[in-house]
């Protein structure tokens, strides 16, 4: 059984179709990449999966359980965590408290019991020396890392990354890709939206392409990126 199973998912904003009959299955342990032009419905798809938006039609299942009408916090507790495209840290809390609140509420841990997990995640993501600084004082790279760290503090089974490499320098991006690959190797299932295609293809085993809310291509990254349709629609190059 796939970890995440999406069937016939539709979402309209007025007359705009943001998700058009989307079918998607993500196996446990997989790393899936999603690309598509701006406005293709990538973030909308994440919002539907994470419960920020509810679909007009279709079902979403996590581990076989129907979560289509579950509220966002219930989906987190069920095992879905996300990072936001524009980081949304809890600015008046410290970096550590950002993770602590996620571990305590997302995984029903006690504060004392969560400290070890949070410390390890911070260490892993190179944020330990900033642990007791206010999250509002972080740099962009640190904020991106905090997004990832906070999502990990909920011990997710499915991690949704929304353009986490956007705005980073080449070396920062390489470093982050390394971290994500290691996370994937440690058993976390990842779905990753990214405009920086080479970062994405370095880390994912399968790629899907969205355009106007429709899935237009799917497969191995190299094959998908080589297909004329994708080159034309996504990169704007005539085949």
């Amino acid at each position: 059984m796939p970890l995440l199973e999406i069937h016939g998912l539709r979402k309209y904003f007025g007359s705009v179709v943001a998700a058009d009959d989307i079918e998607l299955a993500v196996e446990s342990g997989e790393a899936l990449g999603i690309i598509g032009p701006n406005g293709a419905g990538k973030t909308t798809l994440f919002n539907l999966i994470a419960g920020r938006l509810f679909p007009d039609a279709g079902t979403i299942r996590l581990d076989g359980r129907d979560i289509t009408s579950a509220r966002p916090h219930e989906r987190c507790i069920a095992g879905i965590a996300r990072s936001y495209q524009i980081p949304q840290p809890f600015e008046t809390l410290t970096v550590f408290e950002n993770l602590l609140v996620a571990a305590v509420h997302g995984r029903h841990k006690t504060e004392a019991g969560a400290a070890q997990l949070c410390g390890q995640v911070l260490e892993r993501l190179g944020l330990l020396r900033r642990a007791n600084a206010l999250a509002g004082s972080l740099t962009l790279l640190e904020r991106k890392r905090l997004e990832l760290a906070r999502a990990l503090a909920t011990s997710p089974r499915l991690l949704l990354l929304d353009e986490i490499a956007g705005g980073l320098t080449e070396s920062e991006c390489t470093e982050l890709v390394g971290t994500i690959k290691e996370l994937h190797a440690s058993g976390v299932t990842i779905v990753w939206i990214e405009h920086i295609v080479h970062a994405l293809t370095a880390a994912v085993g399968r790629l899907i392409v969205l355009n106007f809310g429709r899935k237009i291509a799917e497969g191995k990254p190299a094959a998908v990126m080589g297909s004329p349709d994708v080159r034309q629609i996504y990169i704007g190059i005539e085949a």
């Binding site: 920020r52 509220r71 966002p72 916090h73 965590a81 949304q88 809890f90 408290e97 609140v101």
Partner: peptide, 24 residues
């Protein structure tokens, strides 16, 4: 308390608070 920890999160970003399992 653990609820108290959630208050600051809700104040700073309701959306992110819900995404880490808080019943706002």
């Amino acid at each position: 308390s653990r609820r108290g920890l959630a208050l600051g999160a809700i104040r700073d970003s309701e959306e992110a608070a819900a995404s880490v399992g808080i019943d706002n």
